[in-house]
Write a protein that binds this DNA or RNA. Structure first.
Length: 151
DNA sequence: GCCAACGTTGGC
DNA sequence: GCCAACGTTGGC
């Protein structure tokens, strides 16, 4: 069992959007970064804990708890020439991009990025490191427990 | 909208 | 395989 922080732009999929989706589940398609893909394809397992993070918005921060709810599978948008996530170098035989499904556990209070920065216990959290841009990052079990306690 | 940081691309 | 140019991310 591992833990992850996954960024989503609320203008794309917010925690409230997730709550309204069938099975409160979203397919995490559209990731086009190899490190983030590898986390999903190689390291994630069904049941892993997810901190659902709102990014690129007025109040960036953790908005809820979720779980990985599928194994990784090919991102269908890479095959669709009409889609903005189309990848001409991918094919059905050799897909390049994979993703998992993520299911809501519960919406929480918004725990702002600024508050995360105040806790020395979280000083090693990947998204707090300077220059971090990765949309999916691993979270230590201790960090995850500490954060859940703040929610 | 600015800009630092980082990833990707492509010429050589 | 180097590296300059370019594109993207995302907080502020």
């Amino acid at each position: 069992m591992r833990y992850w922080l996954m960024k989503s732009e609320p203008s794309d999929v917010s925690i409230d959007d997730l709550a309204r989706l069938p099975n409160q589940t979203v397919a995490w398609y559209g990731v086009r970064n190899y490190q983030a893909r590898n986390f999903m394809r190689d390291d994630m397992q069904t049941g892993d804990g997810v901190l659902f993070y709102h990014s690129s918005c007025k109040e960036p921060g953790i908005a809820g708890l979720a779980r990985v709810s599928s194994a990784a599978y090919a991102d269908h948008t890479q095959f669709d020439p009409q889609h903005k996530y189309f990848d001409p170098k991918a094919s059905l035989e050799t897909p390049r991009w994979f993703h998992v499904d993520v299911q809501l556990v519960r919406k929480t209070r918004l725990l702002p990025l600024t508050e995360l920065r105040h806790h020395p216990e979280l000083q090693h959290l990947r998204i707090l490191q300077r220059g971090n841009r990765l949309s999916i990052t691993p979270v230590e079990a201790g960090e995850y427990a500490f954060i859940v306690n703040l929610l």
